[in-house]
């Protein structure tokens, strides 16, 4: 077993809800409750759960965008800001519409003041995500959803991260392009030696892309294990319910 890049221990995060009554203390929502796990170097870990399960809160804590109320997140590496990058669900709102693609992709490099031959980096990044170098001169709105997600991925790769967090990277995309983006993430994981965290509400997304799966519900980890094992013999009733509720085709036609 390889050493952990992230050690998450007993993580609890509470949010204060807006006051509903003047004379009562505001209620709190516990978004995460005693979450512990290791993210191992080089693995791809799927985090699965429905809305409100705490997936996104967990990512925010891993990125150090928020502080936990209890527990610790330990990153074993250098600069978290450079080495841990994120790709969001909606590539439309994640990309500034007034910036050209080349500037968007290289912005993290500039902000972090990373040395290097920037035009060469851009060319390489665009190639890595399957876009032409000429695309750099265009604006995000000129691209389809799948292409925009490619741009967002190139931007996340620009500072040479060691860990890539992907928060629902395909759920806003057309069905016919989802597989392209997932295949791209798999290629990049190998090519850039990445540790990958893939957050999804849809179990079928992590089935073929992740080595291990962590199932969350209402802020807690209910099951964690090897992907094949979880799909073949889920132990927790909630995991079973999630698996059973994935709509399936009763009949499958011939594979072309």
């Amino acid at each position: 077993m390889s050493e952990p890049v992230f050690e998450v221990r007993d993580l609890t995060r509470r949010y204060r809800l807006p006051r509903t009554a003047l004379l009562q203390p505001p209620r709190t929502l516990t978004a995460l409750r005693g979450v512990s796990f290791d993210l191992r170097r080089g693995e791809s870990l799927g985090i699965v759960g429905e809305s409100g399960s705490g997936k996104s809160t967990l990512l925010r804590l891993m990125l150090s965008l928020e502080r936990p109320d209890e527990g610790t997140v330990t990153y074993h590496g250098g600069s978290l800001r450079r080495e841990v990058q994120i790709v969001f669900q909606d590539p439309v709102s994640a990309l500034d519409p007034r910036m050209r693609v080349a500037d968007l992709v290289l912005e993290p490099v500039r902000v972090l003041r990373l040395p290097g031959d920037h035009p060469a980096m851009l060319a390489e990044l665009m190639h890595a995500v399957g876009l032409s170098a000429a695309a750099g001169r265009r604006f995000p709105h000129e691209f389809s959803g799948g292409q925009r997600q490619r741009i967002a991925i190139a931007r996340a790769l620009a500072p040479r991260p060691r860990v890539l967090l992907a928060d629902e990277p395909v759920s806003a995309l057309d069905v016919s392009v989802r597989a392209q983006i997932l295949n791209l993430l798999l290629d990049l994981r190998a090519g850039y030696d990445l540790t990958l965290v893939l957050v999804a509400h849809d179990l079928s997304v992590v089935r073929h892309t992740c080595d291990r799966v962590l199932v969350m519900r209402a802020g807690e980890v209910v099951e964690v294990g090897d992907t094949r094992t979880i799909f073949r013999s889920p132990r927790h009733p909630y995991t079973r319910a999630l698996l059973e509720s994935i709509p399936r085709l009763r009949t499958r036609g011939p594979v072309a």
Binding site: S144, D174, S176, V177, A179, N183, H208, T209
Partner: peptide
């Protein structure tokens, strides 16, 4: 994963 080439 099997994908359809290109995009809509």
């Amino acid at each position: 994963l099997r994908a359809i080439a290109g995009s809509v």
